[in-house]
């Protein structure tokens, strides 16, 4: 039996997640891994929106903010379990995306970028200004998920870092599985048609407005879940999670790794999460080198890191 490309991708991802810890010299690397997975989840959502549907968003950190603050606030105010709060955040983000997506997605190109940018800034402003509820710019603490304790009672004792490595790794894998399935589904094909030419897609009977909206909602839910996981993992959250810089960071990771490819975008997330840690030894030159690497990749590997590398490998073989 030959493995399909989708299953091969998932298998490679799963193996990488499962085997990497064998090389970890210390617990710190679990933390880095978990950060990569959290970013990887949000970035997978952006692949659906940018890579599949061809729509841009500079405000997806706003949804991460909604997800994060749902986990921070719902347990205290509504008495909800943090796990359920995560679902509430996802529903809320999806709902907000559905509401604002309808008018916003009529816009194209720069206009869409600016409109989504505005949305993201709006969310971070609300989080910062409604200090009575959100704790303001200083942030607020997030309740413990409690799952690690439950695992310990049934005999699976994990350190905090190990638990979050496993939990976020699993979440990212699930996210990748859903996105890859979407890619091969009729909806996915319609999305890609829309990406190549909106007019052509419309002509062959694709409901363009509905499809754009569903891609927007799906990617918002991904971002929201990633924000929730970040909040629960860090046990503390500030409005920075919804900030413009975070939005740009997510788009950069997606484009850097390969905007049309789920494993590519995840590789982008991994590279851009790891590089700043690796470059701390160079101190002042950190940002300079980071910028240089990004420019070089964009100039010489225009499709992003992974798709370009794969093509080069295939071209040789």
């Amino acid at each position: 039996m030959r493995l399909s490309r989708k299953h091969l991708t998932l298998l490679v991802l799963a193996l990488l997640i499962a085997l990497a810890p064998a090389l970890f010299p210390s617990n710190f690397y679990y933390r880095i891994g978990a950060l990569i997975f959290v970013n990887g989840l949000a970035v997978t959502g952006l692949v659906v929106l940018i890579g599949f549907a061809g729509q841009i968003s500079l405000g997806h950190a706003g949804f991460a903010g909604i997800g994060a603050y749902a986990c921070a606030l719902a347990p205290g105010y509504l008495g909800l379990h943090p796990g359920l709060a995560m679902l509430l955040g996802a529903v809320l983000s999806g709902g907000v995306a559905w509401l604002i997506g309808r008018p916003i997605l009529r816009l194209k190109g720069y206009y869409l970028a600016v409109a989504t940018l505005g949305f993201g800034i709006l969310v971070s402003m609300v989080l910062a200004n409604e200090a009575k509820i959100t704790g303001g710019p200083d942030g607020r603490e997030v309740a413990e998920l409690g799952l690690r304790g439950a695992l310990a009672t049934i005999g699976i004792g994990l350190s905090n870092a190990q638990f979050w490595y496993a939990a976020t790794g699993l979440a990212m894998l699930l996210g990748a599985w859903v996105a890859l399935n979407l890619h091969d589904s009729p909806t996915g094909r319609a999305l890609r048609a829309l990406h190549d030419s909106e007019v052509a897609a419309r002509t062959v009977g694709v409901d363009v407005a509905r499809l754009k909206l569903s891609a927007f909602v799906i990617s918002a839910v991904y971002a929201s879940l990633s924000g929730s996981l970040l909040a629960l993992m860090n046990r503390f959250i500030t409005p920075d999670v919804a900030g413009f810089l975070h939005s740009v960071e997510l788009v950069t990771m997606t484009v850097f790794g390969g905007v049309g490819s789920v494993p590519g975008a995840i590789l982008g997330a991994a590279t851009l999460t790891l590089l700043p840690q690796a470059l701390t030894v160079l101190q002042q030159y950190e940002n300079l080198i980071l910028g240089l690497i990004m420019m070089l990749v964009m100039i010489f590997m225009r499709d992003g890191l992974l798709p370009s590398l794969m093509r080069r490998l295939k071209g040789r073989g």
Binding site: R31, L35, F236, I237, P276
Partner: peptide, 9 residues
């Protein structure tokens, strides 16, 4: 704050 936590770890 997220970076601070990573560096603390």
């Amino acid at each position: 704050p997220n970076k601070a936590r990573t560096f603390a770890t």
